[in-house]
Amino acid sequence: MNRRLIGFGGTGLVLLLLTLLLCLGMGSARLPVSQIIGILINHLPGLGETFTPDWNTSSEQIILKVRLPRVLLGMLVGAALALAGAGFQGVLRNPLADPYTLGVSSGASVGAAVLIYWGLQFSFVGIWTLPLVAFFTGMLTLWMVLTLAREGGKIPTQSLILSGVVMQSFLGAVVSFLTAMSKETVNEILYWTMGSLSLRGWSYTGILLPYVVIGLVFLWNRARVLNILALGERQAAHMGVHVDATKLSVLIVSTLLTAAAVSVCGVIGFVGLVVPHIIRLVTGPDYRMIVPLSALGGAIFMAWADTAARTLLAPTEIPLGVMTAFVGAPFFAYLLYRNKKLRRGELL
Rank of each mutant, 00 (worst) to 15 (best):
M144L: 15
Q158R: 03
S163N: 00
L162H: 00
Q158V: 07
S163T: 01
V175A: 11
G138Y: 05
L162A: 00
V145W: 11
L171V: 14
V165K: 04
L146G: 05
S159F: 01
M144S: 09
I155F: 07
L160T: 07
S163E: 00
G164Y: 05
L146K: 07
S163D: 01
I155H: 10
S159M: 02
Q168H: 08
M167P: 00
P156C: 07
V165A: 14
G152V: 09
F170C: 06
K154S: 14
P156T: 07
K154G: 02
L140D: 04
A149V: 01
L162C: 01
A149S: 07
W143N: 03
S159D: 00
A149Y: 02
G172A: 09
L160P: 05
T141D: 12
G153C: 09
R150V: 02
V165W: 05
K154H: 11
V175R: 10
L146R: 07
V175T: 15
G152W: 09
M144C: 09
L142I: 14
F177H: 05
G152C: 07
E151R: 14
M167N: 01
S159H: 03
R150N: 10
T141I: 13
T147Y: 03
G153T: 10
T157L: 02
L160W: 07
S169T: 15
V166F: 08
P156D: 06
S176M: 14
E151T: 07
T141S: 15
G152I: 09
T141M: 13
A149M: 02
V165T: 13
V165H: 04
V166Y: 00
F177A: 13
I155Q: 06
L160G: 06
V175L: 10
S163P: 00
S163I: 01
L171P: 13
T141C: 15
G172K: 12
P156K: 06
G153I: 12
S169H: 06
G172N: 08
S169K: 06
P156W: 08
A173L: 14
Q158Y: 02
T157A: 09
M139I: 15
L140Q: 04
S176L: 13
